[in-house]
Design a protein around this nucleic acid. Structure first.
Lengths: 140, 140
DNA sequence: CTATTTGCAAATGGTTTGCGTTAGC
DNA sequence: GCTAACGCAAACCATTTGCAAATAG
C-alpha cells in the first residue's frame, strides 16, 4: 500500500488540490516514524521550500487528519505529534525525553472494540499509551 | 479513604502550606467527577474567593500532581483535564461534546504493567482512552 | 520572623485566522 | 477564470513566570 498513492487518491476523491506543499508535508511525515511535531516538519521542509509557512503545515496536517490519512498521537504534554501509521498500534512515551515510539504488543494490541456500549458510550477507537522511560533515560 | 485527609497529610509530610486556596481547589476538584479544566474550577471558585487567581489554580493543580494527589487526563484536544480519582481506570471521551467519564471495564481494566521492557521502555503506567460518542451525541 | 504562596500582569508557545495574492484544475 | 490554498502577520488561548505584597507555620 503506497502511502503516496493513498494521498493522491484521497485528494482526487475529496476534491482537495494536490499542491506542492501538501505533498511535501505528507511525504515528510510519512517517511518519519518519530511522530514529529508540525514545527519539526516545518523546519526540515523549509530548506527545500523557503517560502513554506508554518500555517500551511498546520492546515495540511489538519486536512489530512480530517481525511483519515494521518492521526494525532496523544501527547503527554505540549505540542501535538502526528503519525501517518494508521495500523492499530500503541504508543510508548518516555516521560523523561518525550520520545514517542510505536509498539504493537500483546495484550495491548489485542483489545477489540466493544460491540455494544460502555458507560453509555459507543466506542470507536481505543487509544493505549504506555508511559515510562526509554532505555536512554533509564537513570534519570 | 478521605481525600481531604490525604490532602492534609500530604501537605504536612511534604511541607506544603495548607492554604485556603489550595484546599478550595482540591475540594472543588475532588467533588467533581467531570474532569474539569483549571479554568472551570477557577470560574466556580471565584464566586467564593473573589481574589483567587487562575495562576494559583494552575500552581495548585501542578503541585498536587507532583505529590500524586491528582492526575491529568489525556485530552483529545485542548485544555488539560484533571482528575482526583487515583484508582486505576479508563476514560471515555466523547468526540462530539468533549465529555470525559471514568470507566473500569474488562478487558481494559485488566491490563497489568509488563514486568520487563517493551521496545526498550520500562513501562510505569498504562493509559487507556476509549474514544467515541456518548449517548447524548449518538446522532451527531 | 522568614520562607512560601499569592495576585496581578506580562510573557510564552503552540496553534489558528483574516486577508490579499498565487496557483490548481 | 474561478476557487481553493498559500504566505504573512496578527490573533488566540491555555499555561507559565516575574515580582511585590500577603500569610502560614
Amino acid at each position: 500500500v503506497s502511502l503516496r498513492a493513498a494521498f493522491e487518491r484521497t485528494c482526487r476523491e475529496r476534491r482537495l488540490r494536490r499542491t506542492t506543499q501538501r505533498l511535501a508535508v505528507f511525504e515528510e511525515l510519512a517517511s518519519d516514524p518519530s511522530h514529529p511535531t508540525a514545527e519539526s516538519l516545518f523546519d526540515r521542509l523549509r530548506a527545500r521550500f523557503p517560502t513554506l509557512s508554518l500555517a500551511t503545515v498546520y492546515r495540511t496536517l489538519e486536512a489530512m487528519k480530517r481525511e483519515g490519512l494521518v492521526r494525532t498521537v496523544q501527547p503527554v504534554h505540549e505540542p501535538a505529534r502526528f503519525d501517518a501509521n494508521l495500523d492499530p498500534h500503541q504508543h510508548l512515551v518516555c516521560r523523561a525525553c518525550g520520545r514517542i515510539e510505536d509498539v504493537s504488543e500483546a495484550p495491548f494490541s489485542g483489545l477489540r472494540l466493544p460491540a455494544g456500549r460502555i458507560g453509555g458510550f459507543r466506542v470507536e477507537e481505543i487509544g493505549v499509551t504506555l508511559l515510562g522511560r526509554c532505555g536512554d533515560c533509564e537513570g534519570r
